[in-house]
């Protein structure tokens, strides 16, 4: 769909330039062509990744959640979203991700709301892990920390988490892995996959520093879980 959209836009400008014999319209197209090509190559690679069921860069959140959940029992809390109860640094972590290994983003907002309602707000912290777009010149796979709900897209899930976190006054943390637009949709790069251990160390540090032993936390791995099971 994205490739077709690019094709339509490029054709539009080309035909308009031809129709009006305007050099400047064609020039505009020529000027942004390197960027268009970069995006097109990324989407072309995405086709292969999805066809073969390979994890993509956007799947870094679910990959970290899967590593944390490994060995523990998980259940489907809402459609296409699974939760596992994992002991972590003397606390209980409710780790959630989209149900894999098919291409799926799940409903993290709804899942977090459900857990909070079930626990009646007895959660000390919510940690969200996602991929973030990097600027040119930044290293892919760089890990950064912040505050808030790091969920992209139209904002439905982000709103749901913010609403319920505000209701129960639960602090929010975000851990992001930087990636370029090309890395997000194509098969996961080694540099990005290697950042998993760093992110897990940071999760443990945040949990140790901001919660007490015996507390419960929610860890949400956001993104497309293609090629990643639980």
């Amino acid at each position: 769909m994205a490739l077709n959209q690019i094709y339509k836009i490029v054709r539009h400008y080309y035909l308009i330039g031809k129709k009006t014999s305007s050099f400047y319209i064609i020039l505009q197209l020529q000027m942004i062509l390197p960027q268009i090509m970069m995006e097109t190559k990324a989407y072309a690679r995405a086709l292969v990744a999805f066809k073969n069921g390979q994890p993509i860069g956007d799947g870094i959140g679910p990959l970290i959640a899967a590593r944390l959940m490994r060995g523990s029992k998980s259940y489907e809390i809402v459609d296409d979203t699974v939760v596992g109860r994992v002991p972590l640094e003397g606390r209980v972590a409710y780790v959630l991700k989209a149900k894999g290994p098919g291409g799926n983003v799940g409903k993290p907002g709804e899942a977090i709301r459900q857990i909070l309602e079930e626990k009646e707000g007895e959660i000390s912290r919510i940690i969200v892990i996602d991929a973030a777009q990097k600027f040119e010149g930044e290293k892919p796979g760089e890990v950064v920390e912040g505050t808030g709900v790091a969920i992209g897209g139209p904002g439905v899930d982000k709103y749901k988490v913010e609403e319920v976190a505000t209701k129960y006054k639960i602090p929010l943390s975000a851990i992001l892995v930087k990636e370029s637009i090309g890395d997000v949709v194509s098969t996961m790069r080694k540099e990005i996959a290697d950042s998993v251990n760093d992110v897990i160390d940071r999760i443990k540090r945040i949990v140790r520093e901001t919660t007490k032993e015996g507390d419960s936390v929610i860890i949400a791995g956001i993104g497309n879980t293609i090629g990643i099971a639980q």
């Binding site: 069921g53 390979q54 994890p55 990959l63 899967a66 490994r70 894999g100 290994p101 194509s186 098969t187 996961m188 790069r189 080694k190 990005i192 996959a193 998993v196 090629g227 990643i228 099971a229 639980q230």
Partner: peptide, 25 residues
């Protein structure tokens, strides 16, 4: 192949193995 899929037993200790990572260079 997918991450966390069970694979053949370990050639060293014969314990179960799993797919740890899938990546491209």
């Amino acid at each position: 192949d997918y991450v966390l899929k069970e694979a053949d037993p370990c050639p060293k200790c014969k314990e179960p193995t799993f797919i740890y990572m899938i990546f491209r260079k």
